[in-house]
């Protein structure tokens, strides 16, 4: 573990400086294009990511990190097992949608409703991931395209459900009714940050322990490093694949539930798609070469870029979409240096 982290951070100092110089040159070039005042833009960036009255913006960053880190942990389990599950978005939507609908329809004591909704959301996420897994294992549909294509149907199913049968018509928006207020995740005292981040922290610890300390995690990782070897030593590869995908999907589903009960308090059409949580989670994992304990840090980093860009827009009228460009450029320059060989499928599978 430490040797891989070392490889990640060390390397040629000059090369890293050049990389950073490139990234900043591209950013400043883009800002120059619109003649934005650099000083105000940078100040806006930092206050947008970490500042605000009573740290309101920092809380927004943490709230966004919660979802990004959750999605990152979800795909990390798959990636480390050699499974190119890029359908996190669909699993996230399935989880958010189902948990919201369960909470709206199920009567009962709030805590029980919340717990059932979260469990149902996790089950829905797991089921959606398993669908892609079953298609790969039993039919031979490559997981990479199968999981990706499954993002689209669920997106439209969710859109239909909150546009027609479950729509809160009076609100005038395409969204479901509010989930009962008693089921909302409480805020930490004095700040606008829900306790969802604690749930993700638990997941983070659990995935690290799972990856390094359990036999199942070890087998899954082995399967990722060499599927042929795993098969040759008699590991139940099919079962490992499906179980790993189910875990990935369940985490994604949990993240969807956190977005519902902690942030939006209902299912709003597009709320899990537009901010690209799933894709940001994927690049957060790739940035740090899939090293589990670094994932929360890189998730926070990307969340800060997004909220910082919003701050930059407020302060210096730089379109906040620059955040996406920044992320892509960072991934191009950095991830191509660190996580190369880890992800490519062995040539026999291509």
């Amino acid at each position: 573990m430490s040797s891989r982290a070392g490889k990640l951070l060390s390397g040629d100092l000059a090369a890293w400086t050049a990389t950073l110089a490139w990234i900043f040159a591209i950013l400043f070039g883009l800002m120059l294009l619109i003649g934005a005042p650099f000083g105000e833009a940078i100040q806006g960036f930092f206050s947008g990511a970490f500042g605000g009255r009573r740290f309101a913006f920092l809380m927004a960053t943490l709230s966004r990190s919660t979802l990004i880190i959750g999605m990152a942990l979800s795909v990390m389990l798959s990636f480390r097992a050699g499974l190119f599950n890029i359908g996190g978005e669909g699993q996230l939507i399935a989880g958010g949608l189902v948990s919201a609908l369960v909470a709206i329809m199920l009567p009962g004591p709030p805590l029980l409703v919340l717990a059932s909704a979260i469990v149902a959301g996790m089950a829905a996420g797991a089921a959606w991931a398993l669908l892609a897994g079953v298609l790969q294992v039993y039919v031979g549909v490559p997981l990479l395209v199968g999981s990706l294509l499954l993002n689209f149907p669920i997106r439209f199913i969710a859109s239909y459900l909150v546009a027609h049968p479950f729509r809160d018509v009076a609100s005038g928006m395409v969204q479901s009714h509010l989930v009962p207020q008693e089921t909302w995740l409480p805020y930490f005292p004095g700040v606008r940050l829900d306790i969802g981040i604690l749930l993700v922290a638990v997941v983070a610890v659990a995935t690290i322990v799972y990856s390094y300390k359990t036999t199942h995690g070890y087998h899954a990782r082995l399967n990722g490093l060499s599927g042929d070897f795993a098969r040759a030593v008699g590991l139940p590869v099919t079962k490992l694949t499906l179980q790993t995908l189910a875990m990935s999907g369940a985490i994604a589903g949990l993240v969807g539930a956190i977005a519902v009960f902690g942030i939006h308090h209902r299912y709003v059409d597009g709320m899990l798609v537009q901010p690209l949580y799933a894709w940001t989670g994927i690049i957060a994992v790739l940035l740090v070469g899939m090293i589990p304990w670094l994932v929360p840090i890189s998730g926070f980093f990307f969340a800060a870029i997004q909220t910082g860009a919003a701050g930059m827009e407020r302060a210096a009228e730089v379109p906040k979409e620059i955040a996406l460009v920044m992320q892509a450029v960072i991934i191009l320059f950095v991830a191509s240096r660190v996580s190369g060989a880890l992800l490519s499928p062995p040539s026999s599978e291509k």
């Binding site: 894709w279 690049i283 191509s336 060989a341 490519s344």
Partner: peptide, 8 residues
């Protein structure tokens, strides 16, 4: 990696 570059 081609997949990483593609995503980027």
């Amino acid at each position: 990696d081609a997949i990483v570059v593609s995503i980027a």
